[in-house]
Amino acid sequence: MSHATKEGTFSYLKKFGKYSKDFYRFNGELFFPSLGIGTYKPEPYKEDNYIINYGSAIKTALRNGIHFIDTAINYRYQMSEREIAEALSEMIQSGEIKREEVIVASKAGFIPLDFPFPENPYGWIKENIINKELAAADEIIIDQHCMSPKYLRWSCEQSLKNLGLDTIDILFLHNPETQLGYVDQETFYARIEAAFELFETLRSEDKIIAYGIASWNGFLYEEDHTEYISLTKVMEIARRIGGGEHGFKYLQSPFNMAKPHAYGYANQQCEDGFYYPLMHACARFGLSFLGSSPLLQKNLFKRPFTPKIGELMQTSDLSDVASALQFARSAGAITAIFGAVAPSHVIDNTILAYLPNATTEAMESLMSDSYAV
């Protein structure tokens, strides 16, 4: 099998019978771990981006119950995808894992350039995108983001090459709100529609199984914000393009102690006319919500957490990182995606696999004290 399956992901989780029953979640199609591993590295121009390698962390995650891997073509100029390929290939060839046991998600939308960083990035864009008629110049926003169907097809097919896979389990449209403020609302949603048409075609070609949107703030802003995205409008597009069997199944957005709005801020108007927080809106539309940035790129740890947090999260004997991850995975996301390069950090995080989720009462208690929009 060339993609993750219900049977494969269930077979995988059975290897970890000592873990808490809360650690794995089923969305009707696949069994997900409540913690996934990501491969994003901020500050891409820093020298350490050229020497780190996610391969060992990926293998450690797969050996310890974490079988959801999140990446994007633009992460570290395509290198994150290529390092995932090395890790997966080694473990699949040795028989340590099977392809159908692993859920792989990537993203398309940002222009990735290539490794090593080109001397003239604008020349790279012109040579590899504009001259090859993947997009017109006015379809490329601030020299970094593009949603033209031809470009998105190229991006998906390049990701397949990078990952060494026949099929990507989930392909996300990456931060589409980047274009808002540069194009009007009508153009924006028309571009979403064209992207979804392309994704449905990619599904029919077995290049992807499902698709979604990975956003930063687009679904979390106030309704009148320039970069606000309406989930209802996006769902209407998906249904119009794909009918009742459309492949728009996933939404990824930040959720952490400093940014808990996806759970507590009612800003998405649904079909009944009422407003709901993003997680609740996703549930109403049958979408699986994936929480990104659970540690807010380590910005949560500028000072130690109060003892109350550990008490509420049942992590008093663990680290602040464990408390933050416990929070991120306990509100309703099907998985919370953490980044780790060091295998030891993956091992540290999987201690949570033995713990039940934090209770709803504990989550609401903590959130009531933690933020104001």
Rank of each mutant, 00 (worst) to 15 (best):
M1F: 12
K6M: 10
G8W: 08
S11Q: 11
K21T: 13
G28A: 04
G36Y: 00
A57N: 12
I58N: 12
G65L: 09
I69H: 07
T71E: 13
A72C: 11
A72K: 04
R76D: 09
S89G: 14
E90P: 01
I97R: 10
V104H: 03
A108N: 08
F110M: 14
D114Y: 13
I140V: 15
D143K: 15
M147C: 07
Y151R: 09
R153M: 01
Q158F: 04
L160V: 06
L160W: 06
L173R: 11
E177I: 05
G181L: 07
Y182T: 14
F196V: 00
T201I: 00
D206S: 11
A210L: 03
I213F: 00
N217Y: 13
N217A: 13
L220W: 11
E222H: 12
I229T: 08
G242L: 09
L251T: 06
A258M: 10
Y276K: 02
A281S: 09
A283S: 14
R284S: 04
S293R: 06
P294T: 04
Q297L: 03
K308L: 14
Q326Y: 06
S330P: 04
A333C: 08
T335P: 10
F338W: 02
F338K: 00
V341L: 15
A342D: 15
S344A: 13
I351C: 11
L355V: 04
P356S: 03
